[in-house]
Simulated scan of single mutants.
Amino acid sequence: MHIVHTIPELRAALASSRQPAFVPTMGNLHEGHISLVRQAKPLGDAMVVSIFVNRLQFLPHEDFDSYPRTWEADCAKLQAAGCDVLFAPREADLYPEPQTFKVQPDPQLADILEGQFRPGFFTGVCTVVMKLFSAVFAGKPQGVAVFGQKDYQQWLVLRRMVQQFALPIEIVPGQTQRAADALALSSRNGYLSEAERAEAVQLSLALRALAHAALAAADTLPQQWQALEAQAMQALQARGWQPDYLTVRRRSDLLPPQTGDGSGALVVLGAARLGSTRLIDNFEI
């Protein structure tokens, strides 16, 4: 595995590649990340992973400074998974001057759900991903990037960004990886205490229950969908959670469903804080 830190080094390492396969990460890798690497590897002629904790997507009160950095363990996992090139830029390598030019995503998609509770988050995500795409895919006729569907809204935002900028990059979704009890794997699961870890699965259970209720009510009025969402929120609150949202949306644009929308068109999404840890999850239905 070739480890590089600067964009010129990365481009030199990929000089002979015509179709890189790319998985961007913030490190602290778990089996969910590694599954994306395994999925991406046969899709290109060079398997590239980046590790970069992107300051632009953290709000001032969020965990940028304390975000886990596990460099040696990450390198070992990536080498075992068949990564060819690891791009690990320092902040000064990726942002040698203040990043005053930024990618502003469509507010109709990016200012709802996660964007409502983490304003500016998707601007930070789109800006760093566009810069990483420029570094990895410059001069290439085509490429592939794999993003996990646990971050469902992020995957949709980035897919829309690639479409609108006509980038020669295929955005491929990676299935959410789960623990034995169905908790979605996440780097932030490491923040949970033993008791919180046992409780954390309740978010996925609440979303499953909301999905079943939503399908049963597919022909009802939108106001009744909202009542189901409110009930799901209240059930989590009763267990000591602080939910931001548990909601049923259309897969295509994350707007509220219309009467008659049913199986195959919908996704349930949730974000909630357990203690000091904020978890997200979703299920397509």
Rank of each mutant, 00 (worst) to 15 (best):
M1I: 10
I7V: 14
P8D: 03
E9V: 07
A12I: 06
L14K: 08
L14D: 01
S16P: 12
P20I: 07
V23N: 10
P24V: 01
T25W: 03
G27W: 01
H30W: 05
E31N: 06
S35L: 03
A40D: 15
V48I: 14
P60A: 04
E62A: 04
F64D: 03
D65E: 12
D74I: 09
C75E: 12
A76M: 07
L86V: 05
R90E: 08
D93Q: 01
P98N: 09
Q99S: 03
Q99I: 10
D106Q: 02
A110L: 04
D111N: 11
E114V: 00
G115K: 00
R118S: 00
F122V: 02
T127L: 08
T127P: 03
V128Q: 00
V136W: 02
V144A: 09
V144R: 12
Y152M: 09
Q154P: 07
Q154T: 01
W155N: 07
V157H: 01
L158R: 02
V162P: 07
I171F: 03
P173E: 10
Q177N: 09
A179T: 02
A180Q: 04
A182G: 14
S186A: 05
R188F: 14
R188M: 00
N189C: 12
L192F: 07
A195T: 12
A195P: 01
R197Q: 02
A198M: 08
V201Y: 05
S204K: 02
S204Y: 06
L205K: 04
A213N: 07
A216F: 13
A217L: 14
Q226G: 13
Q226F: 14
Q234I: 08
Q237K: 12
A238K: 03
W241Y: 05
Y245Q: 05
G262N: 09
T277A: 01
R278Q: 01
L279P: 00
I280P: 00
N282S: 12
E284Y: 04
E284V: 10
E284R: 03
E284A: 13
